[in-house]
């Protein structure tokens, strides 16, 4: 074969986001560094190529859908909701999800309180639950402004809060990671957990969005 086509990606991505054209573009200095570091780590016996592939697969499996399933359970099961708010790591593990060493805190949105999560110092995110953070979460704009003018930032995401809602911003400065349990939308009585989970977006679990209406 001329070359291995698994390194090539063509066409639109499943999520609708653009792929980076890095695989076929000219080889960059930093890509050469990645290849060199990976090869040296494997050759020196620190890890195997199979372990690297398995880790990529494990991260690919972590997506906002997992968090959405947790939220849907919390909406449906008061005991689970109480446990989630008391000890989110234990509740999520009890729910059957592998979240590695994650120390998770769940914060709940109500008709009086809206929670918003940021990491001003770097890009801390509950990746072991939700997958990798979106690009905007890591930008100077979000990191700088979410702690000073959260309501203005929320408006840039299209979220206008009622006047009597208190905003609680959570800066992930150390060892905890945060997930927002969005408020359950009206008109969802009697819906199955599976149907409820489809209303829970990634942004709703960061706090920059609300759960969708059915």
């Amino acid at each position: 074969m001329p070359h291995d086509h698994h390194d090539h990606q063509h066409g639109p991505s499943p999520s609708g986001h653009p792929y980076r054209a890095d695989n076929d573009g000219p080889l960059t200095y930093w890509q050469r560094m990645e290849i060199a570091v990976r090869e040296l780590l494997v050759e020196k016996g620190h890890m195997t190529a199979a372990e690297i592939s398995a880790q990529i697969d494990a991260m690919d499996e972590r997506s906002p859908a997992r968090g959405a399933a947790v939220v849907a359970r919390a909406w449906s099961d008061p005991d689970f909701r109480a446990q989630l708010l008391e000890d989110a790591s234990a509740a999520v593990r009890g729910f059957g999800l592998d979240i590695g060493p994650l120390n998770l805190i769940a914060v709940e949105n109500t008709d009086r309180v809206h929670n918003l999560v940021v990491c001003t110092l770097c890009s801390c995110y509950p990746r072991d639950l939700l997958g990798l953070p979106p690009d905007w979460y890591k930008t100077r704009a979000y990191r700088s402004r979410a702690v000073f003018e959260p309501r203005k930032v929320l408006r840039e995401f299209g979220v206008e809060l009622p006047a009597d809602t208190t905003v609680r911003v959570h800066d992930s400065t150390a060892d905890m990671r945060y997930v927002v349990v969005p408020a359950r939308p009206p008109g969802t009585e009697g819906m199955t957990e599976e149907a409820l989970a489809r209303l829970v977006t990634r942004d709703a679990m960061i706090g920059t969005g609300l759960a969708k209406r059915p």
Binding site: P18, N23, L132, P134, D135, S144, D203
Partner: peptide, 22 residues
Amino acid sequence: MGGQPAGPVVPEDHDFALWEKR
């Protein structure tokens, strides 16, 4: 960066390339 002046948040995202995942 917390509290520093900065521009609007542009809600952009992209799917990661293989080399980034590696």
